[in-house]
Design a protein around this nucleic acid. Structure first.
Length: 315
DNA sequence: AAAAAGCACAACCGCCCGGAG
DNA sequence: ACTCCGGGCGGTTGTGCTTTT
């Protein structure tokens, strides 16, 4: 059975929209509105599928849309809301006037995910990678923990190398400031290996450190910088991480979600109910992620690396 | 200077869901 | 109860521009 297709695929045009098509669609909608998307392309004289017209309108032509770069504030909002509702792009976009779910999704996938990863934070759970590894490690026996550390390094090594070597100047500056003074290029490979070794050592230690595990299960990151042994970068220009989820209210922080197949929908729904209120209050009263800046004010404890060593958040 | 790789963004696809009739 | 439609979503592809090699 199944539904009838929204259009005959053979007879519709696909691909990039031309300015002419845009004009036709915009003019038609301005006159007749968006009542029936199936009829719109036909009536507007467009060889397009109704769904394609709807997407073009909602994602690009709508007059209230904002085009251009996301601001820092918008990025922070995305991260903040995402930490509460996950990949519900329309919900996130609703907090950003003039932005569409597709905009937000694209921006998330192309920039913000990398930015968070670069900060050592898992973009799915919004927890630091080290924290996640430690949580997993609590369920394993010591021999398995060692394997876990190896596996984790295998997973992250390529990305780490990418992040660490993307902007050689950072290394160069750090090297000279450390008084070592060797030319960057000749030491590049050695530095990579050295850094990987440091990460390896630190990660193994983190996973096996009982205090860290106890602390992480009790106090959530960002709420008590003194108890949390996580690894965060120092303040990133134009980007601050955190939000309401950094308190005990976040479903992520309660380990209900462990990946993209998160099943905590009910809880997320409840948090969503509070979301708009929270965001409203935060933007007005300043009770927001800026209060969790303590996170950014300590060097990485877990991996025994100064935060500048680990990541370049602006990659 | 040219080719290759990387990147950002627009657009599409297939599936699902809820509301209206 | 059923169909149709609009809309949401995750994933993916296509395209054009920029950066790197």
């Amino acid at each position: 059975m199944g539904r009838i297709p929204c259009c005959e695929k053979d007879s519709v045009k696909r691909g990039q929209w031309t300015p002419e098509e845009d004009n036709k669609l915009a003019a038609y909608i301005a006159q007749y509105g968006t009542k029936n998307w199936r009829l719109i392309p036909k009536n507007a004289g467009l060889q397009r599928c109704g769904k394609s017209c709807r997407l073009r309108w909602t994602n690009y032509l709508r007059p209230d849309l904002k085009h251009g770069q996301f601001t820092d504030a918008e990025e922070q909002t995305i991260v903040k809301v995402h930490s509460v509702v996950g990949n519900r792009w329309s919900l996130i976009a609703a907090q950003l006037p003039g932005r569409t779910d597709n905009d937000v999704k694209n921006h998330w996938n192309t920039k913000l995910k990398k930015k968070l990863s670069g900060m050592g934070i898992d973009p799915v759970t919004h927890k630091p990678f080290s924290h996640l590894m430690a949580e997993i490690a609590t369920t394993l026996n010591p021999p398995q923990v060692a394997h876990l550390a190896e596996a984790a390094l295998g997973c992250f090594k390529d990305e780490m190398l990418h992040l660490l070597t993307k902007k050689p100047m950072d290394f160069q500056l750090q090297q000279s400031s450390a008084g070592q003074g060797n030319p960057f290029i000749t030491n590049k490979i050695e530095q990579k290996e050295d850094t990987i070794e440091k990460i390896k050592l630190g990660l193994s230690r983190a996973i096996q450190e009982p205090g860290m595990i106890a602390a992480s299960s009790k106090s959530h990151w960002g709420t008590s910088a003194g108890n949390f042994h996580g690894c965060f970068p120092e303040s990133v220009p134009g980007f601050q991480y955190g939000g309401p989820s950094f308190g005990n209210s976040s479903p992520w922080n309660q380990s209900m979600c462990t990946g993209s197949t998160c099943t905590a929908g009910d809880q997320q729904g409840r948090f969503h109910d509070k979301l708009e209120d929270e965001i409203g209050q935060e933007s007005e009263g300043g009770r927001d992620i800026r209060n969790s800046s303590a996170i950014f004010n300590s060097d990485c404890v877990l991996w025994d690396l100064p935060s500048a060593d680990l990541m370049n958040p602006m990659v």
